[in-house]
Structure formats: structure tokens, C-alpha cells
């Protein structure tokens, strides 16, 4: 086991953390601030990835242009979905069941349209990478991490430095008192739900560009990203990204050093250790 190989694995893991962080962001905010555990976030991301694949492969639409269409559309999907949650007064636990059902529905839809086969969105730039000394850094994965970092920073700024973000946090903390001071939590929650859904679109874009698509992939992400959300702390965007990178690196190193089959064990082992240990910074 050479040092270069280890470092290369770590870099790969760090970059993988980008996509974990992207997916975790929307889930973490929705769970922490709206008290809705939105499992369909993953299905939505994959739906976005498939749409980008479809538009690109069949009509030659560049991925960035597809994303420009999909993001506002997903924002609206987020609003519509939230309207249902609000109308039926869906509780935290019930939201998990409802969105699990929705996930199955979207997964079936994807399978019906695009089949259960593995698909890969081929682009001329897919294999581009930077070379830093002995290390290769694939450009698209690097962009994923950059996008995750930009979104996490934007979300942090929005929640901690703007009045609307503080109002959202206040409403999540004590809804009735926030309302007594004029905070219209319902309207803010719609905006947040829309933004979370749009962030699933961003994750979809990078899933399309960097991963192989199959409907069954949706579920394989749920477990790891759940662990990432909990380790990162609910409604903590920067924590979600940091946890994503931690899990990504740990998985990659496990694959390189021990055995690739052990990688799925890592996320939950770390989660359990951290939950037992409960360090102060968590």
C-alpha cells in the first residue's frame, strides 16, 4: 500500500463527500427547520439526474441548460409537496412514511420510463482531470464539492446572517412565540421547502454528471446520507458538508486499506461511535 494510493483514495473520498453534502443539505434543513423528514429528496435528486441524462442524450441539451430549467421546476415541486404536508398537517414521523411512499412512486416512474438498466450520461468532458503532483483530481467531482461548499455557505449565511433566516430558526424553535412577534412561519416554510427541492435538483445535476444511474441507486444513498445528516447536526448546513467529507474519506480509506465490501459499514459505525461518545463539538 503506497502513500500515493492512500492519498489518492482520500482525495476521492473527500470529493465523494461533496455529493453526500449536497444531498444531505436539503434533508437536514427540512428535517431541522420544518420537522419534515423528506425521504423523497433522494428520489427527486435522481429524477433530476434522469431528466438531465434524457435531455442531454436525446436532444443534446447541455447539462447546465437542463439544470436551469429543472431548478425552478423543482422549486415549484417543493412548494406543491409542502402544500400537501401543510394541508394534511403531516407530523414528523408521518412525513417519513408519506415520503417513503412517494420515493417508491418516483422510483417506479423512473423504472417505467428509463428501465431498470444502468445508464451513464456520456459527455466529452466527463474524463477531464487535474493533475497535482502524483494525484489526479477529476474535474466534475471537484465541481461537485465546490457546488456543495457554495450551497452550504449560502445556506449558513442565509440562516445566521439574514433576518428571514433568523426568523425561520426562531419559528422552528418556538412557533407560537415567533408568530406573536409577527413571523409568518407558514410562508417562510414554503420558501425553504422550495429551496430544499431545488437543492435536490443541484444534487441531481452532479449525480447525472458523475454517477451511473439506476432506479435502485436511490435507496443505496439513503442510509449513508441519513448518517451524514445526523452527524452533521440537524439544520446545520456546514456540519452536513463536513460530515459528508468525513464519511466520504472514511469509506474511501476503508475500501483501499481493508476491503471494498466493508465501505457501507463505515458510515453507520462512525454514526454509532459519535452517538455513544457525543463529543462537545457535535
Amino acid at each position: 500500500m503506497s502513500f500515493t494510493l492512500l492519498t489518492q483514495s482520500a482525495v476521492g473520498g473527500l470529493l465523494l463527500g461533496g455529493i453526500y453534502g449536497l444531498l444531505a443539505l436539503g434533508l437536514s434543513l427540512s428535517w431541522g427547520l420544518l420537522r419534515l423528514v423528506n425521504l423523497s429528496h433522494f428520489a427527486l435528486a435522481f429524477l433530476g439526474a434522469y431528466l438531465i441524462y434524457h435531455l442531454g442524450t436525446n436532444y443534446g441539451v447541455p447539462a447546465w441548460l437542463s439544470a436551469l430549467i429543472i431548478l425552478p421546476a423543482f422549486f415549484l415541486v417543493g412548494l406543491a409537496l409542502h402544500a400537501l404536508f401543510v394541508h394534511f398537517k403531516v407530523s414528523e414521523f408521518a412525513s417519513m412514511l408519506v415520503t417513503f411512499g412517494l420515493t417508491i412512486l418516483i422510483e417506479s416512474l423512473i423504472q417505467w420510463i428509463w428501465s431498470a438498466d444502468f445508464l451513464k450520461y456520456e459527455t466529452s468532458y466527463a474524463q477531464e482531470s487535474l493533475r497535482i503532483g502524483p494525484l489526479y483530481v477529476p474535474i466534475l467531482e471537484l465541481l461537485t464539492l465546490v457546488a456543495a461548499a457554495v450551497l452550504a455557505a449560502a445556506a449558513w449565511f442565509g440562516l445566521n446572517r439574514t433576518t428571514l433566516g433568523k426568523a425561520l430558526r426562531a419559528a422552528a424553535h418556538d412557533g407560537p412565540i415567533a408568530a406573536a412577534f409577527g413571523i409568518n412561519a407558514k410562508r417562510l416554510s414554503y420558501v425553504l421547502a422550495g429551496l430544499c427541492a431545488a437543492s435536490a435538483g443541484v444534487a441531481g445535476l452532479f449525480i447525472a454528471l458523475t454517477s451511473t444511474l439506476a432506479p435502485s441507486q436511490i435507496e443505496s444513498w439513503i442510509g449513508v446520507v441519513f448518517a451524514v445528516v445526523i452527524i452533521g447536526g440537524l439544520a446545520n448546513p456546514v456540519g452536513a458538508l463536513a460530515a459528508g467529507m468525513l464519511i466520504g474519506v472514511s469509506e474511501a480509506l476503508t475500501m483501499a486499506v481493508v476491503n471494498p465490501a466493508w465501505a457501507p459499514l463505515v458510515a453507520f459505525s462512525i454514526l454509532i461511535i459519535l452517538l455513544l461518545w457525543r463529543p462537545k463539538w457535535l
Partner: peptide
Amino acid sequence: ENLELGSYR
């Protein structure tokens, strides 16, 4: 921040 939220409206 608590004081700021008091003057939200």
C-alpha cells in the same frame, strides 16, 4: 438576535 426578532415587523 432575540431583540432583533422582537422588531421583525
